[in-house]
Amino acid sequence: MIFINAFLISGLFCFVAQVIMDNTKLTPGHITSLFVVLGAILSFFGLYPKLIEFGGAGATVLISNFGHMLYTGGVAGFHEVGILGLASGLLTKSSLAIVSAVVIAFVLALIFRPKN
């Protein structure tokens, strides 16, 4: 059942992140950076596509998916246009997340004031 798998994958990653955070001096900034790199490494070993196959959206909502998209974007770029494709293709898949976060955050910053 994909809904339960989504719950398990997403929950498990967050569980590990919380355990790391509580037992070290790392901040959420450290942890998210760590998990992005972990996503790229899992993608490199061909494991991240399997995670997505198993957990569906449970794997794609994680920040690790950002690392996965960067890696696959770079590799896909290389196969399309060669060596320069590593750079030109790297951000193609993750562009969606970056651009939408930037646009939404900018517009909201124009409308709202910080609450504290």
Binding site: Q18, M21, T32, A101, A105, L108, P114
Partner: peptide, 21 residues
Amino acid sequence: KAGLFLPTTGFAHSVTSAALD
């Protein structure tokens, strides 16, 4: 905690809160 900052929601939160602040 990690339940919300590890998903993409955490990335959006960090951008938006910096923009607001």
